[in-house]
């Protein structure tokens, strides 16, 4: 709400400055009167919408790191994620790790062989109650109404409070200029600059133009993204028919990434 009010005020301000004083909202009232119309901002009608986005990862549908690499690669490529040579400066949006690291509280000695050796995808959990958003002093990281937790790189001051707050280790910081470490730039998506935090954005830029997240697209059906409040959605059907787990549910952050094991 606050956002739309804010941009409304700004647009209204622009109109007032240069081109007449009528507020934007008059557009709707005056359309028929064939008066001069005011500028307005619309959503793309093709955009994919959800009450709350969620992701289900069906870990039965892949076997090895080789199956996951194309998924990670797809994300890295379209989001201009640098490949740093120094491990300290590493940037990761989506990656994979062993069960005992991903599910630290559910690991035991006698976990069956498949799960023990299977790599698990790790990414931002787009929490219901994100600790990072609570911690950010500038609202540079924020939760959208549809549940996606996003970064505004223009606003981030690089205090890294969100990184300390995130219980999943999903955030990365640009310890240096990432550009020299990006082999092939995707011109459709910006890079980042040194000194800001970044993380998975659930491909908000793709959802806005009607495309599914890149990882889901590259996963051969192992990753499904959809509206968890829509009982007809594919994510809900998967959750209805399969037992799924989440990372560190005891923290109450409400992660939106589900794993069918």
């Amino acid at each position: 709400m606050e956002n739309s009010r804010r941009s409304f005020l700004k647009i209204a301000g622009i109109s007032a400055l240069g081109l007449g004083t009528k507020p934007v909202l008059n557009v709707f009232a005056s359309g028929e009167n064939s008066e001069k119309r005011e500028a307005e901002i619309q959503k793309n009608p093709a955009a994919l919408k959800a009450k709350r986005w969620a992701m289900v990862i069906d870990t039965r549908k892949y076997e090895s790191e080789e199956d996951l690499k194309p998924i990670v690669e797809a994300c890295n490529k379209i989001h201009n994620i640098p490949k740093h040579t120094n491990k300290r400066h590493e940037i990761m949006w989506i990656w994979f790790d062993e069960f005992k690291y991903v599910f630290t509280n559910q690991e035991h000695e006698f976990v069956d062989d498949r799960v023990k050796h299977l790599p698990f995808l790790v990414l931002c959990n787009h929490c219901e109650k994100p600790a990072c958003v609570r911690a950010c002093p500038t609202k540079a990281t924020f939760k959208r109404d549809d549940g996606i937790v996003l970064m505004d790189f223009h606003r981030c001051i690089g205090c890294r409070f969100c990184m300390a707050a995130c219980p999943y280790g999903s955030r990365s910081f640009n310890f240096r200029d990432p550009r020299p470490f990006i082999k092939e730039e995707n011109k459709e998506f910006p890079t980042r600059m040194k000194g800001v935090v970044e993380k998975c954005n659930l491909c908000a830029e793709r959802l806005a133009v009607g495309k599914m997240p890149a990882c889901a697209e590259a996963s051969n059906g192992a990753i499904v993204v959809g509206d968890i409040y829509d009982s007809e959605s594919e994510v809900r059907k998967l959750l209805k028919n399969n037992y799924a787990i989440r990372r560190k549910p005891e923290l109450g952050a409400g992660p939106a990434i589900y794993y069918i094991v």
Binding site: R6, K10, R37, A39, I41, Q42, R144, A204, V209
Partner: peptide
């Protein structure tokens, strides 16, 4: 005013996912 427009745009796109501008 281009900088104001760009500022409004970035706010709208980044934080609101509204990406279409309809001019006068």
């Amino acid at each position: 005013e281009h900088m104001q427009i760009l500022d409004v745009w970035r706010e709208s796109v980044v934080r609101n996912a509204s990406r279409t501008y309809v001019s006068k």
